[in-house]
Amino acid sequence: MSQAAPAPYRWVAGDLILSVHVQPGAKRTQVAGLHAGAVKIRLQARPVEGAANAALIAFLAEQFGLPRKAVQILQGESSREKRLRLRTPAPERVAAVLQSWVLQA
C-alpha cells in the first residue's frame, strides 16, 4: 500500500509554512506542480549572489498578496529544498492561490 506524500504546507499560529523545491535558471518563473512533498517553483533567476532567493521571495509575496518582508526563508537558503514562513496571509487568498497552482500544474 503506497503512502500519500505529505502536504507541502501547514499553518502555525496564523502563519503559512511552505515547503518548496526550486529550479533556478528556468525560462520563466512559475509553479510546476509538486516534487517530493514540496511545491516545485521554476525561477528565471540564477542562483548567483542570492538572486534566486530574492526572486522566490518576490514571487511568493506577489502570489499571496504580502509585502516581501512577510516572506522569510526558514531553512535551505543555499539549497533547492526550502522551507518558508509567510506571515499571516489571508486564508481565502491562500486557498485561491493553492487552487490555482493545482490547476496550472
Rank of each mutant, 00 (worst) to 15 (best):
L16G: 01
G37W: 02
V20S: 00
V39S: 06
A32L: 01
K69E: 15
G76N: 03
G50K: 06
V94K: 04
P89R: 09
Q23L: 13
L43R: 03
A38R: 13
V94Q: 05
T29W: 02
G33C: 03
A61H: 13
G14E: 10
S100Q: 09
S19F: 04
G14N: 10
Q23W: 05
H35N: 04
Q3D: 14
G33Q: 02
G50Q: 11
L98H: 11
L18I: 00
V94Y: 05
A5Q: 15
E62C: 08
L103F: 06
G50D: 11
L43G: 05
P47M: 12
A13K: 14
Q99H: 02
P89Y: 13
V48E: 15
Q75S: 13
A52E: 07
S100D: 13
P67K: 08
A13E: 15
S100T: 08
Q99Y: 00
V102T: 08
Y9R: 13
W101G: 05
E62W: 05
A70K: 09
S2I: 06
Q99G: 01
R10Y: 14
L18Q: 05
E81R: 13
R10M: 14
K69Q: 15
Q44C: 07
Y9I: 09
L43A: 07
P47N: 14
Q99E: 11
P8E: 08
S78W: 10
R85F: 07
A105L: 00
S100A: 04
V39W: 12
K82W: 04
F64C: 13
A26I: 02
L60V: 09
E77V: 11
T88P: 02
V71L: 07
N53V: 05
L86T: 10
G33A: 04
V97T: 12
L34D: 03
E81A: 11
V31E: 12
K40C: 11
I73K: 05
V97M: 10
A58F: 06
R68Y: 04
